[in-house]
Design a protein around this nucleic acid. Structure first.
Length: 592
RNA sequence: GGGGGCGUAGCUCAGUUGGUUAGAGUGACGGCCUGUCACGCCGUAGGUCGCGGGUUCGAGCCCCGUCGCUCCCGCCA
């Protein structure tokens, strides 16, 4: 079939019919051009006033749907459009069939202007016609198909798991679905097929994957859709952490390389960075390795006796080098400092500018030459650089602010090369963390991870061994690419005793764990293989490959940040009868 | 739940120190134009300056509140 993208010089002379939307209409009085657009491309069609099709063609407006019939003719050399694949030909319109008209558009399809998000979401079907979104969504399909092929080639088998399942006590807030048959009871939409995939391993299928929908009732971010998203969920039996890495690396690296379009994807094996090291050097657990800035701990420098800067004494001080920034205007430094105050809620970001042999800036005078020298060595600084400081009594807060500052400075100084993909594994996550608000020990990530600790010693742990417990690492790992967490995974805990103990340490009574995870615990008592896996986020992968900074640009029908679908009007009220059937009564919040 | 930014024509935006009748581009509509491909030229219509209150002789502009969108923090095993 002929399309708006298929006709070439070799088709000249043929009588064709093509259908599509009016992309653009150019009326020259004596000559009318209509650019007709479909999924495959754009073809210029032309008609003159003395021809019988002119009147009908003249009626057509932007985004009307037409079927145009006519002869394919070659354009003259001067009128060839080399920007279009179909630019060597045009169609002489002989017949016009109007399939559908269009009102004045709230969102023009033609052109590449930016439009407000709510308009784009409400008229998503129009936005999807536009080149950028149309291309992104098509790319998404190709990426998913490539991933699926690579997984199957790698010996994995795809299975579906339930969408209506049970609420789980750990993790994000669940989406609940009331049960009609069981008054007062609820299903939950799966936050991930976590327990199911482990049960699949117990069932003896040893290499599972699924492009799995996941549902979490949490607030949105640019890289986090509200409500629902997709993961490449995978799990393997009889494997070590290294085996999982070796299975996943070629899939991700291969997929990114396939669609890289000239961008550099880095080594096929991803570097491994321990969680603690990442927190120190990059100030977070999802470092953007395109950014060359490396944070250093300089608490020791400010603790020296010859350094009299009181504001930093006794605090954790992290230094964020800003290479080559000494020549930046004062406003650069003020802007960073102002940003730290207003957006990060910090006291500010001190800095020293290294010009010639000395240092300049508000706190330079507190550092005698020897201390400055020590600082420069510690951070790898040279003349022409400057350095910012993040200080806080709590090391975690100092690290976090430093991490944000590292990102901000790297961006402001244009140090981040957007033609790169830089992957890494973050490994050795802590098993537990201290919850200061509620004064108790929490799981720090996935409660199903295997602790990196001998079994007997782990079983003998007491909740009072707080330092030992908080020092425990887990076989828990993330994949990070360009500062985006792509994937979280673990070697799982398949030992019921260790699992009960692990939950007990986090404050769950044995009976409670037995009830909440009955299915899985029970299964582990009938022969469970050691297993592990991970689950890269599909939406984020596509976002990175598409070069977009927001998931909505790679999602066909996304919700807004308030988790509303502006096109379909979801969520919406339901009839009293529906509520009655579900044994549900709504109680509106009181307006505070 | 908290913080930052934004809100002016269908759409994208400008609007000076608070000053008279709020502008441009684009789109729509009409006219002219035979080679454009962001066609060009002329004209017409199109406004609750998000909403409410306040200050002022006078508010798009200043103040307070509120709503919406967005980015971030909290949250996201």
């Amino acid at each position: 079939m002929d399309t708006c993208g298929s006709l070439r010089r070799s088709d000249v002379g043929r009588q064709v019919t093509i259908s599509g939307w009016v992309n653009r209409r150019r009326d020259h009085g004596g000559l009318l051009f209509i650019d007709l657009r479909d999924h495959y491309g754009i073809t210029q069609c032309v008609v003159e006033p003395d021809e019988k099709a002119f009147a009908a063609a003249d009626q057509a407006r932007s985004e009307w749907v037409l079927s145009l019939t006519g002869k394919v003719v070659a354009r003259t050399a001067e009128t060839v459009n080399s920007d279009l694949p179909t630019g060597e030909i045009e169609i002489r319109i002989e017949e016009v069939a109007v399939q559908s008209r269009a009102q004045e558009l709230p969102l023009p399809v033609f052109g590449d202007m930016t439009y407000p998000e709510d308009t784009r979401l409400k008229y998503r079907f129009l936005d999807l016609r536009r080149e950028r979104l149309h291309r992104n969504i098509t790319l998404r399909s190709k990426v998913i198909s490539s991933i699926r092929r690579r997984m199957i080639d790698g010996g994995f088998t795809e299975f579906q798991t339930p969408i209506l399942t049970a609420s789980s006590p750990e993790g994000a807030r669940d989406f609940l679905v009331p049960s009609r048959l069981h008054p007062g009871k609820f299903y939950a939409l799966p936050q991930a097929p976590q327990q199911f995939k482990q049960l699949i391993m117990v069932a003896g299928f040893d290499r599972y994957f699924q492009i799995a929908p996941c549902f979490r009732d949490e607030d949105a971010r640019a890289d986090r859709s509200p409500g629902e998203f997709y993961q490449l969920d995978l799990e393997m039996s009889f494997v070590t952490q290294d085996d999982v890495f070796a299975a996943v690396e070629p899939v991700l690296h291969g997929t990114f390389s396939e669609f890289a379009d000239g961008r550099d994807c880095g080594p096929a094996q991803f570097p491994r960075i321990a969680y603690d090291e990442s927190m120190l050097k990059y100030g977070n657990d999802k470092p953007d390795l395109r950014n060359p800035i490396v944070i250093a701990d300089v608490s020791g420098v400010f603790a020296r006796e010859d350094v009299a800067f009181k504001a930093f004494k006794g605090k954790t001080v992290r230094a964020i080098p800003a290479p080559g920034s000494a020549s930046q205007p004062r406003s650069f430094f003020d802007r960073i400092d102002g940003w730290a105050k207003s957006e990060m809620g910090a006291a500010g970001l001190g800095y020293i500018v290294l010009e010639g042999e000395g240092g300049k800036g508000p706190i330079a005078k507190f550092l005698p030459p020897a201390a400055l020298q020590a600082l420069m060595e510690k951070c790898g600084l040279k003349a022409g650089d400057s350095v910012f400081f993040s200080a806080d009594a709590k090391p975690e807060r100092a690290a976090l602010l430093a991490g944000h500052a590292r990102t901000r400075i790297g961006r402001d100084l244009n140090l981040i090369d957007d033609k790169l993909f830089r992957f890494c594994w973050i490994v050795d996550f802590p098993m537990y963390e201290w919850n200061e608000d509620e004064k108790r020990i929490d799981f720090s990530h996935n409660p199903f991870s295997m602790p990196q600790y001998p079994r007997e010693k782990f079983l003998a742990l007491d909740r009072s061994d707080r330092d030992t417990i908080l020092g425990l690492k887990a076989y828990q790992y993330d994949i990070v690419c360009n500062g985006i967490e792509l994937s979280s995974g673990a070697i799982r805990n398949h030992d019921p005793d260790v699992m009960l103990k692990a939950f007990e340490i986090a404050g769950y009574a044995r009976e409670e764990t037995e009830t909440k995870f009955a299915g899985m615990l029970n299964a582990f008592r009938y022969g469970a293989p050691p297993h592990g896996g991970t689950a890269p986020g599909i939406d984020r992968i596509v976002m990175l490959i598409a070069g977009e900074e927001n998931l909505r640009e790679v999602t066909m029908f996304p919700m807004n940040q308030q988790a509303q679908d502006l096109m379909m009007n979801a969520p919406s009220e339901v009839s009293p009868r529906q509520l009655k059937e579900l044994h549900i009564r709504t109680v509106m919040p009181e307006k505070g």
